[in-house]
Write a protein that binds this DNA or RNA. Structure first.
Length: 420
DNA sequence: TCGTTCACG
DNA sequence: ACGTACGTGAACGAT
């Protein structure tokens, strides 16, 4: 088995990453993370009240009660009874009622906004507020997730039972869930995340001069992209231009199509295509990287990360265009997402080794793809914060610096920048 | 068990 | 003419 692994260039990934990491993950799972159960029970009650109110609103607007959580019943109310214009269909041919559709219909009828709000609150209550307290272990008083090493095709970890990698943060109501994740008594949470790691890796692997320079100067990368794309000076980058550039940057990482970008930016396909052409004109190294990656994938049937991890993309030469293009997007994205996974895994191994060798009381408790969370005694925080930053930023030497942002707080929602 | 929806990076 | 962003896990309703 070792010979076969070595023969495909994965010896380092196996012996220097995955095998040592398994012990680190075991320690993290055993350590668990503290949650404030009383707070979650209160939050659940609040959500229950808000849901009841919202439910009544929706029944009144619909003229009858129905199961709001049933996409089928909801579709009948919206598209048959209220005669709202149906949008896209689902894979099975039913009219979609997802957030994107409801957002568009919100200008037509107030019930749509109410349903969006109901959905948000319902998600928070049923997936988080009601479930997390039941998963607190009776003897440790903490939640012990599983970090899965062999699930994600790119080399990322996944987390299950419960998934602690999708705890809400984007909405204000969602952040109330995150507040329940706390440090042990006398401790604080220390969190560090890689800033723009996938775009930095794109700069590294593509060698694109302007991208490299932007990161060397530690520029706001989306603003810098906006300057290039729209030909404006730094003080001409409006929030709107920056937002568009940010979308284009994400689109590149995901192997964009002109159609996909046009949908995302709400503009004609022609315009989106012009954006893309302009992007590649300004950043020719990125186009070369994409061309070379696709060409390699078509020839070999797989792509690799910086450390030799493979993602097989057998459908890269498929006759069906949709199938083939999906494989192409995966081939473009996987080396970036996968190298980022390799890098944080190496940092976790190094950090764990130092925590043990040097006798720190702190524990690594969570990993969320580009972020590590530690539960640490308050007195360890100042020095530990620097150790954490050094481990994460120093684990790989690339053509761009790996910037790490460190935060401290009493709970996972209310973190402040660590400054020393 | 599958489809839909939605939480995260 | 058509139409998808990459990677996950979980709850819920319908079957």
């Amino acid at each position: 088995m070792n010979q076969q692994v070595a023969a495909i260039g994965c010896a380092d990934v196996l012996h220097r990453i995955e095998m040592p990491l398994s012990e680190v993950l075991a320690r993290m799972e055993l350590a668990g993370v503290a949650v404030d159960v009383d707070y979650l029970h209160q939050l659940s009650d609040v959500l229950e009240g808000l849901l009841r109110t919202k439910e009544g609103e929706i029944y009144t607007l619909a003229g009858e009660p129905f199961n709001i959580s049933s996409p089928k019943q909801l579709g009948q109310i919206l598209f048959d009874k209220l005669k709202l214009p149906a949008g896209k269909k689902t894979r099975t041919g039913a009219y979609s009622t997802d957030a994107e559709v409801l957002e568009q219909l919100a200008v037509e009828h107030p019930i749509c906004r109410s349903i969006l709000e109901y959905r948000e609150l319902s998600k928070l209550k049923s997936t988080y507020a009601d479930v997390l307290p039941r998963l607190v272990h009776p003897s440790t008083g903490r939640i012990h997730t599983s970090f899965n090493q062999t699930v994600a095709a790119t080399g990322r970890l996944s987390s299950s039972e419960p998934n602690l990698q999708n705890i809400p943060i984007r909405s204000e109501a969602g952040r109330q869930i995150r507040r329940a994740f706390v440090a042990a008594p006398g401790n604080r949470l220390l969190a560090a995340d890689y800033s723009q790691i996938e775009l930095r890796l794109l700069a590294h692997v593509s060698g694109d001069e302007r991208l490299l320079q932007a990161f060397a100067e530690d520029r706001d990368i989306h603003a810098a992209t906006a300057m290039l794309l729209f030909g404006v000076p730094a003080d001409g980058v409006t929030p709107e231009l920056r937002r568009k550039a940010k979308t284009v940057n994400f689109a590149v990482l995901y192997g964009m199509s002109d159609y996909g970008l046009s949908q995302e930016l709400g503009m004609p396909v022609q315009e989106a295509r012009a954006f893309i052409e302009n992007y590649f004109r300004q950043l020719p190294g990125v186009r070369r990287y994409i061309d070379q990656t696709l060409s390699f994938a078509r020839e070999h049937g797989f792509v690799t990360t910086l450390y030799g991890r493979r993602r097989y993309v057998p459908e890269i030469n498929h006759a069906n265009r949709n199938v083939r293009q999906a494989a192409e997007r995966a081939a473009i994205n996987s080396p970036l997402q996968g190298t980022a996974a390799d890098i944080i895994k190496l940092a976790m191994i190094e950090l764990d080794r130092r925590l043990r060798r040097e006798g720190w009381k702190a524990s690594m408790v969570l990993q969320v793809h580009d972020e590590l969370v530690l539960d640490a005694p308050s007195e360890e925080i100042p020095v530990l914060a620097n150790l954490l930053r050094e481990c994460m930023s120093g684990v790989a030497s690339l053509r761009v610096p790996l910037r790490v942002e460190v935060e401290v707080g009493d709970n996972w929602a209310e973190m402040e920048k660590f400054v020393l």
